[in-house]
Amino acid sequence: MSAHAPVRILYQSYTDPALHQPYLSRLTDYLAGIAAPGVSFEVRGISPADTQLGRLSELRCSVQSIAGIVEAEREGFDAVLVGHFQDAGLFEARTAVDIPVVGHGEASMHQACMLGGRVGIVSIDPVYLPWHHEQIRRYGLESRVVDVRCMQITPDEAVAAYDDPAGYEAIKG
């Protein structure tokens, strides 16, 4: 029996490493805690982060993300997880590299459907409603995802809730 080579997975976040450090630190710790033996995750973000909430910002951030994914392949990573539910740039990234690229939105929606016959999505802001409905159609889940509801919080508020009990309570409200 031969030993398996270590597996390196890049978690490509759409958050800013400087501005969103508490979130990224918790994410790094979480991934280390769930990683199988011989599997390691490295979390990287982008700067500036996706905080403008719109298609133009999603495009700008996806270009940065794709550049990071191309670099990850050059550095010898075995796979990439795009840590952004909207999956901006996911299909473009898949055409740019020869390693697996998994999208949060796509994987989460399919996993949810495996756990329940019908599922719903909760998004952080109504600006993403059209985007999520497009994702649902793209992934062939129109009969399974029955509703999309939205909070009205900024990405910075969502990230701050990881390190600020008052911010967490305000969102949980």
Rank of each mutant, 00 (worst) to 15 (best):
Y14H: 15
Y14V: 15
T15K: 07
T15Y: 04
T15E: 07
T15C: 03
L19W: 00
H20E: 12
P22W: 12
Y23D: 04
L24V: 08
L24G: 11
L27Q: 13
D29S: 13
Y30H: 13
Y30T: 07
L31C: 07
A32M: 03
I34E: 05
A36T: 06
P37I: 10
P37F: 07
S40E: 14
F41M: 06
E42Y: 01
E42K: 07
V43M: 08
V43K: 05
I46W: 00
S47W: 02
D50G: 09
Q52Y: 00
Q52C: 02
L53T: 03
G54W: 01
R55P: 06
S57I: 05
S57K: 06
E58M: 14
L59Q: 12
R60H: 05
C61H: 06
S62V: 05
S65G: 14
S65P: 00
S65F: 01
S65C: 12
I66L: 05
I66Q: 08
V70T: 08
V70R: 15
E71I: 00
E71A: 15
E71S: 13
R74Q: 14
E75D: 12
G76W: 04
F77I: 02
A79E: 01
V80S: 05
V80E: 01
L81R: 03
L81P: 00
L81H: 08
L81N: 04
V82P: 00
G83N: 07
G83C: 06
G83R: 02
G83A: 14
G83K: 00
H84F: 01
F85L: 12
F85Y: 13
Q86F: 00
D87R: 07
G89Y: 07
L90W: 10
L90K: 10
F91G: 01
F91L: 12
E92A: 15
A93P: 01
A93R: 05
T95E: 14
T95H: 12
D98S: 15
D98L: 05
D98F: 01
I99V: 11
P100E: 09
V102W: 06
H104T: 13
H104C: 12
A107I: 08
S108W: 06
S108R: 03
M109H: 08
H110C: 06
A112E: 04
C113I: 09
L115H: 11
G116W: 09
G116L: 11
G116D: 12
R118M: 08
V119K: 07
I121C: 13
I121S: 04
D125N: 15
D125S: 15
P126N: 13
V127Q: 02
W131K: 06
H132E: 05
Q135P: 00
I136T: 07
R137P: 00
R138I: 01
R138P: 00
Y139F: 15
G140A: 12
G140W: 02
E142R: 15
E142C: 14
S143V: 04
V145H: 08
V146M: 09
M151G: 10
M151D: 09
M151H: 11
I153W: 10
